[in-house]
């Protein structure tokens, strides 16, 4: 499996994805200028812009690398030669996932350093009212990366049975959007304002809440931007949720992929 991880990483670098990210990362240089338009929170705005840019790049990576990795192999018939080797389909799928997830982590680390540089520069010119908590910022980036790794797992699950890349790509985007609001929907249906909703709708919404990934838990931008503390038990629960949910998705993906008929 480690060989597949290495090959996946090499393939991503060979496709010049990293160079593409580095070019996109040049946008970081514009952030101090844009942030200076703020009246009272220049550093906070530079943090907002940096974290959002980082998050957006990782979203693109997760959708396009995660949703096309398996499909591309099957389409180019690489799977025939690779799976002819003494390697189980499950190991192949997990290796592909591991390589993509590692690349996202690497990107998060590199772009995170760039974001820290931008924020450090802005805060030196425009000192913020509250000191920046670098640990919170690092945690925010880490949890963002975990969120996108979870999204990659969704993409792999969809790729495991899809015959084209449309379902994995659009399904992943739809899951990302839905996963971002499940908590709000859940809070709404459990509030007094939703009394007029029919019980069936409430039950369906509750069912979807448990079924879909909850990306809201991974969003710690507000904590990083305004130096708000992150509760330790919340982090522990979120990491546990991540491990269990990714475990379920990958187990399902591996089970489906191992029974898939290759043509």
């Amino acid at each position: 499996m480690s060989t597949i991880i290495k090959i996946t990483l090499k393939g991503i670098f060979r496709d010049r994805v990293f160079q593409g990210i580095m070019v996109t990362a040049c946008v970081f240089l514009l952030i101090p200028g844009i942030a200076s338009l703020s009246m009272r929170q220049v550093t906070e705005l530079s943090l907002t812009l940096s974290l959002s840019l980082l998050s957006f790049i990782m979203l693109l990576l997760s959708v396009f690398l995660g949703a096309t990795s398996l499909w591309k192999d099957i389409e180019r018939r690489y799977t025939f030669s690779v799976l002819g080797l003494p390697l189980s389909r499950q190991s192949y799928l997990l290796g592909r996932f591991g390589g993509t997830a590692l690349f996202v982590l690497l990107t998060a680390a590199v772009l995170g350093i760039a974001a820290c540089g931008v924020v450090a520069y802005t805060s030196s010119v425009y000192p913020p009212d509250r000191p920046i908590v670098w640990g919170t910022m690092a945690l925010c980036i880490l949890f963002d990366a975990l969120k996108y790794i979870l999204l990659i797992a969704v993409a792999f699950l969809l790729s495991s049975f899809s015959t084209s890349f449309f379902l994995p790509v659009f399904g992943t985007i739809a899951t990302f959007l839905a996963g971002g609001v499940t908590q709000q929907v859940y809070d709404y249906i459990h509030s007094p304002t939703s009394q007029k909703l029919s019980p069936v709708v409430k039950q369906i919404a509750t069912g979807l809440y448990y079924l879909l990934p909850n990306f809201g838990a991974f969003d710690m931008k507000v904590n990083a931007i305004y130096s708000l503390p992150i509760p330790a038990n919340g982090m522990l629960l979120t990491v546990s949720y991540f491990l269990v949910y990714v475990g379920i998705l990958l187990s399902l993906a591996a089970a489906i992929f191992s029974r898939r008929e290759m043509r």
Binding site: S38, L45, T48, L49, L51, S52, S55, F56, D144, K147, F176, L177, G180, V181, Q184, F215, G216, F218, D219, K221, V222, I225
Partner: peptide
């Protein structure tokens, strides 16, 4: 807006 903004609410607000 909250739905569309996904995890970029702070960015949309700014």
């Amino acid at each position: 807006l909250k739905t569309v903004a996904a995890d970029h609410k702070e960015l949309v607000a700014a």
